[in-house]
Simulated scan of single mutants.
Amino acid sequence: MSLVLSRPSFITDDAVARAVAAHWLPEAAEADYLPWGFGAHHWRVAGGGTSLFVTLDQLAPRHTAASLEAAYAGAAALADAGLGVVCAPLPARTGRFTVDVGAGMLSVTPWLEGRTPTEAEAREPGHLREVLAVLAALHGAASPDGLRRWAPRVGPGFADELRARTAARPWTSGPLAEEARTALADHGDAITRWTGRYHQLADLALAHQDSWVPTHGEPHHANQLVDAHGLRLVDWESLALAPRERDYADLLTAGAGDRLHAGPAMVELFALDWRLSEIDEYARWFAAPHTGSDDDHTALEGLHEELSAAL
């Protein structure tokens, strides 16, 4: 999903600080908004000499409250079992890892001193070797209890539903709506082809669930942190049991294909999984009210990028 730069209008920094104080850090005094991440909002909350990294995940269409809780609880269980590559969330006073604040589900992790590699750094051979080692450790770990299983993110009727939605013209929900509608409508045949192939491959994956492993879902450079202890993965909201190829898309484009034992059908499945879910989210974005903000323009660029991709 696109980069979130704008401060959310539906929750204040003070409300975030109060929620963190109530559920994690009683000394929490202030929350500083961070324009980081993909598809979520983040803050640094400090108090009593401690800093926390706070995430607000909104739910539909990607999550339910239960699926998000299961993902973060699963990440914590992996860390507790000794998987040091996990930057794990911290439990709230209730023992749960997410707190409903009305505008979404709040979670926290320790504030870690480190840095995110650039895209160029993430393609360097030495770094790729580290990422391969991290993923091998994750894929070889025992699955935590309650970990959700991957399932197709759009249904078999997605292309037909989208074609019907974009046939109604014009979209008047915001200044970029009609450009988005036109782009989606112009690519209706490709979306139909992608959706059909996606579900063929999903059926194949679902028939071999005995070989599925814990997968991060989005281990790209923006979800990597390099600190004094080495490379760790952050943002575990997509954790799920799945074919290991779910974690390989960025490694393949970075040039690590010769070091992966990846089945081409599953690689294709998860390339389509990403593309179609992104198209779905962008379609929802521009059918909803929007103002033409920087985030909206970034989202429109993302939509055009996904629609122009070739498979």
Rank of each mutant, 00 (worst) to 15 (best):
A309L: 15
L90W: 01
E119K: 13
L260I: 08
P175E: 12
E305T: 09
A180T: 02
T118W: 05
P144L: 01
L135F: 09
S211I: 10
L128T: 02
S67Y: 05
L184P: 04
H208L: 04
P214M: 06
G95W: 03
A122H: 07
T253V: 15
A310D: 06
H304G: 03
E278V: 12
E305C: 02
S238Q: 08
H139V: 03
P214Q: 03
E281P: 00
G255Q: 05
G230L: 04
A17V: 09
E27Y: 00
D294C: 10
P125E: 07
F158W: 02
G95N: 04
A180Q: 07
R149W: 10
L204W: 15
R149V: 04
D189C: 13
Y282G: 01
D210T: 14
L5S: 13
V20H: 10
G114H: 05
V4A: 08
G82K: 12
L90H: 05
D100Y: 07
R181G: 09
P117Y: 14
D296Q: 07
L206A: 12
G257L: 00
I191W: 06
D32V: 14
H229W: 02
P152D: 09
R232E: 03
D80E: 15
T64Y: 07
G126F: 03
G157Y: 02
P35V: 03
H220R: 14
